[in-house]
Simulated assay, not measured.
Amino acid sequence: MSQKNWFDQGGSAYARFRPEYPPELAAYLASVAPDAQLAADVGCGNGQLTRLLAPHFDQVIGLDPSADQIANAAPDQRIDYRCAPAEQLPLDDHGVSLITVAQAAHWFDLPAFYREARRIAKSGAVLALISYGVLRPEPVLRPRFQQFYDDEIGPYWPPERRLVDSGYATIDFPFDEFQAPAFEIRAEWDLPQFLGYIQTWSAFRSAREAGKQALLMTFANDAARLWGLPETRRAFSWPINMRIGRLITPA
C-alpha cells in the first residue's frame, strides 16, 4: 500500500470530486428573494449551485470568467451560462432578484463587484456570499487530517483562503444583512474520492509545484492505513457559511 500513487486518478478532478451543495440551500435562497423571475450566480464555476437554483426561478444566469469552467457546466434549458468577470456583468440594470456567489467572493475585487450587484439588482433583491469551511472527517481520520491541513499543507494555501476559513466574517458587506439558518454539506466517499477531493485544492497544486510530492504521498498513505479497505465509504461534512443581505435600490 505504501507504494501506491493514490493521486494518479486522471481526468478533471474539480468537476468529479467537489462536494455538492444541499438542495435545501437553494430552496432557502429562493424563499427570501422578492420574486422568482431571475437569479444570477456569479463565479458559478461548473454550475454546482446554479443547477440547484434552476427549479426555483423562471431563469438563472451563471457567470464565470473561466471558459473552461463554463464548458464543463451541465446544460439546462433554464440556465444561461455566460463567460464574464464579476466586476463586469453583462446583465441589464435592476432586473435580478437573487445574486449568489458560491466559494468565489475571495477572488473578486469586491468594491467593483458590489457596484455591479447594486446596478443589476432590483429593489429588495438578495445578495448571498456563500462559502464552506474546512472538511470534517470521521474521528478515525480527524487528527491526521487536521495536522495535514494546518501544519503540512497550510503554508501552501493562498492568503485568500483565510477569508474562506473565517466564513467571510472579516470582509466588508455594506448591505442590509440578516441571519441565515445553518446548513451543511454532507458526502460519503471511498478513499479514492476523498483523495481526489484533496487534489482539487489550490494548496495541493502549489505544494506539488514546490516539489513537495513526498509530503502529499505521506499523507495519502497515512490516510490509507487509517481508512482500511479503500472501497469503504466514510462520512464527511462541511459547514456552510453565508453573508446575506438585501439590496435596496433608489425608487
Rank of each mutant, 00 (worst) to 15 (best):
T50Y: 03
T50H: 01
T50D: 08
T50G: 06
R51T: 11
R51G: 13
R51Y: 00
L52F: 02
L52C: 08
L52N: 08
L52A: 13
L53N: 10
L53I: 11
L53A: 08
L53G: 10
P55G: 09
P55H: 05
H56A: 13
H56V: 13
H56T: 12
F57M: 07
F57K: 12
F57W: 09
F57G: 07
F57T: 03
D58L: 15
D58S: 15
Q59I: 06
Q59A: 15
Q59D: 03
Q59V: 07
Q59N: 12
Q59C: 10
V60A: 12
V60M: 10
V60C: 07
V60F: 00
V60I: 08
I61L: 02
I61N: 02
I61M: 10
G62W: 01
G62V: 08
L63P: 03
D64F: 04
D64W: 03
P65Y: 03
P65A: 09
P65N: 04
S66C: 03
S66Y: 03
S66E: 02
A67L: 10
A67Q: 13
A67G: 13
D68E: 14
Q69I: 11
Q69M: 15
Q69F: 11
I70R: 01
I70W: 00
I70N: 01
A71V: 04
A71T: 09
A71L: 00
A71F: 00
N72P: 01
N72K: 15
N72I: 06
A73H: 01
A73Q: 00
A73I: 03
A74K: 14
A74F: 11
P75S: 05
P75Q: 07
D76T: 00
D76S: 05
Q77V: 10
Q77T: 14
R78D: 09
R78K: 13
I79K: 11
I79S: 11
D80E: 13
D80F: 04
D80M: 07
Y81W: 08
Y81G: 04
R82S: 03
R82M: 02
R82F: 00
R82A: 09
C83W: 07
C83N: 05
C83D: 06
A84T: 03
A84V: 04
P85W: 00
P85C: 00
P85V: 00
P85E: 00
P85M: 08
P85Q: 02
A86W: 03
A86S: 04
A86K: 01
A86N: 00
A86G: 12
A86H: 01
E87W: 01
E87S: 06
E87D: 11
E87I: 07
Q88S: 15
Q88L: 14
Q88V: 12
L89D: 07
L89F: 02
P90G: 05
P90N: 04
L91P: 05
D92S: 14
D92N: 13
D92T: 14
D93P: 02
